[in-house]
Computed example of a mutant assay.
Amino acid sequence: MEFIKWPLSAGLCPSLTQDVLLQLRGKGIETVIDFVSMNPERITAVCGLPFKRVLAIRRVLLAQYSSFPVNGLDLYDETLNTIAVLPTGCKELDNFLECGIYTGEVTEIVGISASAKTQFCHHFATNIAATLKQNVIYIDSTGGCSVRRMSELLKLNHPDEHLTSALSSIKVCKCQSLFEFKNAINEIRNNLQNEETFCSALKVIIVDSISAILGTCMYATSYVEGMSDVQKMGREINKLAKDFAIALVVVNDVVSTSVAVPSATTSNISFSKKPALGRCWSYVPSVRLTFEPVTEPTRLLPKDIMENDRSMDFTVSVTKSPRSFNRSIGLSVTRHGIVKIQK
């Protein structure tokens, strides 16, 4: 990191006269950084200046050129005033997640195909719209967003709410490429800054799925450029969540990696699963939840759940969180959405 070299000049403060300036320059102290980075006792010993004068000059230089300090208690109070905890719509899951999904963070939902990730997004979005009367932007990149399914959830879980009013609080945005995703994020940021009507009550942004958008950029150009795009978008959505106190939920897939386990006779190959998009993405989410089907995963379409009354059990594990770690809970997907497993 290269510091700006502000030169010392007479008149910056009453104690910094021309004679003092010549003494400092004679000892190689020519910039503000040189002065404030040196111990005051050493300046007194080397230059022969009074200790009180050195402290007075140092105090003025720090007040003029240093960043404004923030009291830790004030920063803590500001954080408490801007952070909100949003309920998911399932009491057991809220208790498991320390009251729910936190704003100002990126929460990642990781799992294989047909592990209830999209069903959770539907359940969470409808609960925010109906219970808290807040707006939700649903960025759909896979075509899995079902308005019919969200309407069914609203009718079953919130029968007293007006269906049209609740659905109008959920805005669905189709993004099939990185270019469209960048434009959508930039438009959301501009609308938030300009306090556009819909975004003035925006509390949740759901991206389903982020791997479908960012995974393609690794192969469209070179691998290094693709990783750079992933990092840039990771910083952008993290900054968006923090700047406007929004809960940003992203859905990510898993990939299998093979690891050779040597033995006395042969080398066995073991397979492990990890979130997609690589290590450059791992720093982006503050909370990572892993969804795993209890039995062999079978894709449940909204029609199967609504008309055939089918259900699927799955587990939710916390694999990354500043509040809890290495815990899991069993849940089920039914017509009513995400509920506790019925024994």
Rank of each mutant, 00 (worst) to 15 (best):
T164C: 00
Q176G: 01
E108R: 10
N186F: 12
S258W: 00
S200R: 15
A184M: 07
D19G: 09
V60L: 01
Y65M: 05
A245M: 02
G234Y: 04
I341K: 13
V230S: 06
R310W: 01
G337V: 13
V318P: 02
D313H: 05
C280R: 00
T319G: 11
L8H: 13
Y102M: 08
A184W: 00
E196A: 14
D208S: 10
D160R: 06
V36F: 03
F124I: 05
I185Q: 01
T257H: 02
K117S: 11
M227P: 00
I269G: 03
V255S: 05
K203T: 13
L97K: 08
V207L: 05
N81S: 15
S317Y: 08
G111Y: 09
I170W: 01
S169H: 14
L248T: 11
V60D: 10
P302G: 07
K242Y: 01
C217K: 06
S200Y: 02
Q134C: 15
L300P: 06
K239Q: 15
I83H: 08
G144I: 01
L75I: 01
K5T: 04
Y283K: 04
D94S: 10
A220E: 15
E30S: 13
V46Y: 02
L331H: 11
A220Q: 14
S15C: 11
F244Y: 14
R327I: 02
I29A: 09
G143I: 05
N252C: 09
C145H: 13
R235Q: 13
N95S: 14
L156S: 10
T257P: 00
I33Q: 12
L156P: 00
M150L: 05
D19R: 15
V224N: 10
T290S: 12
T88Y: 06
T126G: 03
V224M: 12
L80R: 13
L301D: 12
K239P: 00
K232F: 09
V251D: 02
M306K: 00
